Structure formats: structure tokens, C-alpha cells
Amino acid sequence: NQASVVANQLIPINTALTLVMMRSEVVTPVGIPAEDIPRLVSMQVNRAVPLGTTLMPDMVRGYA
């Protein structure tokens, strides 16, 4: 089972991601792999991401 990136807090739209906003968790469906967390830092979300939501590739500008 692969860990995915999950929002550690509410992340408002257009917010640049920081390490404290994300955690890794084994979830279904699988989202962005946890090993990509360092790559996600400073990328912006293109929608509001509620606490506990799995980050999907289409939620992060420039990721996919």
C-alpha cells in the first residue's frame, strides 16, 4: 500500500504548499504519492482543499 499526500489543514485556493500543510497517509483512492511531498513545496493549489482531503494531481498547479 502506497502512502498518498493528505491535507493537514484547510488549504485555501491559490495557496503555496508548505511541509506543515501536508502529511502522508495510506488512503483510497490513491492520490499524489507521499514521496513527491518535497516537490510539492511552493506549488499552488487551484482549489480549496479541506482538512483530510487526498491531494490529486489536478489539484496542484504545475504538478501533472
Rank of each mutant, 00 (worst) to 15 (best):
G62E: 11
I37P: 01
P29A: 05
D36T: 09
D58I: 06
A3V: 09
E35F: 12
V49T: 07
L10V: 09
V5H: 01
S4C: 03
R23W: 04
R47P: 02
V30G: 11
Q9W: 12
P50F: 07
N14G: 15
M43T: 05
M21C: 03
A34R: 06
I32Y: 02
V60L: 11
Q2F: 13
T18N: 08
L40G: 01
L55C: 02
A7K: 00
P33G: 08
M59D: 15
L40H: 01
S4K: 00
G62R: 05
N1T: 13
M43N: 06
G62A: 14
Y63A: 04
G52L: 04
V45W: 00
D58W: 09
R23E: 05
R39Y: 09
G31E: 00
Y63F: 13
T15Q: 15
R23I: 09
M22P: 00
I13Q: 14
Y63E: 04
P12K: 13
V20C: 03
P50Y: 08
V45Q: 00
P57I: 10
N1I: 15
R23H: 10
I37Q: 05
I13F: 15
M59E: 03
L40Q: 00
G31L: 01
R23L: 05
V26H: 10
A48V: 11
Y63N: 05
A34F: 08
G62C: 04
R47S: 15
N1Q: 14
A34C: 04
M56V: 13
G62K: 08
M43D: 03
G52Y: 05
A16Y: 12
L40D: 01
E35K: 12
L10W: 13
M21I: 03
G62D: 09
V49S: 02
V27A: 08
T28S: 15
P33C: 04
L10S: 15
P50I: 08
N1R: 06
R61M: 11
A7N: 02
L19Q: 13
A64C: 04
L10M: 08
D58C: 03
Q44F: 08
M59G: 03
T53C: 03
G62L: 07
Q9G: 08
D36E: 15
M59L: 05
M59K: 02
L55E: 01
L19S: 09
Q9N: 08
M43F: 12
V26C: 03
P33D: 05
L10A: 15
V6C: 03
N46G: 12
